[in-house]
Computed example of a mutant assay.
Amino acid sequence: MTEKICIAVASHKPYRMPADPMYMPMQVGKALHPDIDLGPSFTPDDTGDNISCLNASYSELTALYWMWKNCDAEYKGLVHYRRHFGRHKLFEHNEDRFASIASQKELLSALDDNNVDILLPRKRHYVIETVYSHYSHTFDNKQFIEMRKILSETCPEYVPSFDKLMKSRSAHVFNMFIMSREKFDEYCSWMFPLIGMLTDRIPPESYDSFGARYPGRVSERLLDVWINTNKYFYVEFPVISPEPVNWIKKGSGFLLAKFAGKKYGKSF
C-alpha cells in the first residue's frame, strides 16, 4: 500500500483489479472460506485486527474494519470489485471501462484542490420513493426503526439527520468513500458500535442468507447521517462498473417492490 492513499477493493472471488498501486485487492470473508485463495495480490481480511468471521452478514464492512484497524495511509478508502470511483470524463476515447476508473492523481487532486477530507460517490436518486419507503418495500424496515432507537439512546444529536434522511429521495450509498485517516477512523469508531448493537437486537441469523446481510445495508444509510450531523464537506465522483448494468432488470425489481410488494431476494 502507498503511504499517501490506499483504497481497498473488496472482493470474494478472482476479478480484474485496477492497475494503479493505490488500489489494494482485498479478499473478504477469508475466515469463513479458508480453502479459497485468491492469490498473493489479494490481502485477506482475516489478518491483523479483523472481523472476517462476520462477513456473511457484514459483507464489505469486514474490509472497512480491516482498513480502520490495520492501514495507516494518509487517505483511506473502500470500493468494490464491480463498483469504483470513475473519472469525471468517463469512457473518453476508450472502450475499456477500467480506463475510466479514477486514478491516484485525480483523487488526490480533488482532495487537495478542494481542501476536503471526504470523497463520495454521486448520490442515488429514488425519485418516486423516499429512503425509508424504498427500504421498507425492498427489505425489513424494522432494522431502520431499531437503529433510530439506538441513535436516540446513545447519540441523540444524530436523530434529526437520520429523520431527514429517511424522508429524503436521495442518499450516498454503496459503502464507498475515501477519507482522511482521521475522518475515516472517526466514522468507523462511531458506526461499528451502532451496527454491533443493532445485530444484538436483530440477529442476522433470523433471516435467510440474503437478508442476513442487512448490517451492510443499514450502515450505507448511516454515512449521510454522520456527515450531515457533523457538517463535513465532501466532493462527489461518478460511479463506474466494469460490467454493464442491466437497468431493465434493476428497474423491474424496483417497481415490483414498490407496487407489488415483492421484496428483494438477491442483488441486481
Rank of each mutant, 00 (worst) to 15 (best):
A31I: 06
H33C: 09
P34K: 12
D35I: 06
D35N: 13
D35L: 07
I36T: 13
D37Y: 11
D37G: 10
D37E: 14
L38K: 03
G39H: 14
P40V: 07
P40I: 06
P40N: 13
F42I: 01
T43N: 10
P44Y: 10
P44D: 05
D45N: 01
D45V: 07
D46E: 09
T47E: 07
T47N: 02
D49A: 09
D49G: 01
D49S: 08
D49F: 03
N50W: 07
N50P: 04
N50A: 10
N50I: 04
I51R: 02
I51Q: 00
I51D: 03
S52Q: 00
S52K: 01
S52R: 03
S52M: 04
L54R: 02
L54C: 10
N55Y: 01
N55V: 08
N55P: 08
A56H: 07
S57F: 07
S57E: 05
S57L: 05
S57V: 00
Y58N: 02
Y58K: 01
S59W: 05
E60I: 07
E60D: 08
L61A: 09
L61R: 00
L61W: 03
T62L: 04
T62W: 00
A63K: 02
A63C: 14
A63E: 01
L64S: 00
Y65R: 07
Y65V: 01
W66V: 00
W66C: 02
W66T: 06
W66L: 06
M67L: 13
M67C: 10
M67V: 09
M67F: 04
M67H: 00
N70I: 05
C71M: 06
D72C: 09
D72T: 13
D72A: 13
A73K: 08
E74K: 15
E74A: 15
Y75G: 06
G77T: 09
L78F: 04
L78E: 01
L78R: 01
H80W: 00
H80R: 11
Y81G: 03
R82F: 06
R82Q: 05
R82I: 11
R82M: 05
R83Q: 09
R83V: 12
R83E: 04
G86V: 08
G86N: 06
R87P: 11
H88Q: 13
H88T: 14
H88I: 11
K89W: 12
L90S: 08
F91H: 15
E92W: 13
E92D: 15
H93I: 11
H93L: 13
N94H: 08
N94S: 15
E95I: 14
E95C: 07
D96N: 14
D96R: 01
D96P: 07
R97M: 14
R97I: 14
R97A: 15
F98V: 12
F98P: 08
A99F: 04
S100G: 11
S100Q: 04
I101P: 09
I101V: 15
A102H: 02
A102W: 02
A102M: 02
A102V: 14
A102D: 09
S103W: 08
S103K: 11
S103I: 13
Q104N: 14
K105N: 14
L107R: 09
A110E: 14
L111A: 10
L111D: 04
L111F: 11
L111Y: 09
D112S: 13
D112C: 11
D113F: 11
D113S: 13
N114I: 03
N114G: 13
N114E: 12
N114F: 07
N114Y: 10
N115H: 14
N115C: 15
D117Y: 05
D117C: 07
I118Y: 05
I118T: 15
I118V: 15
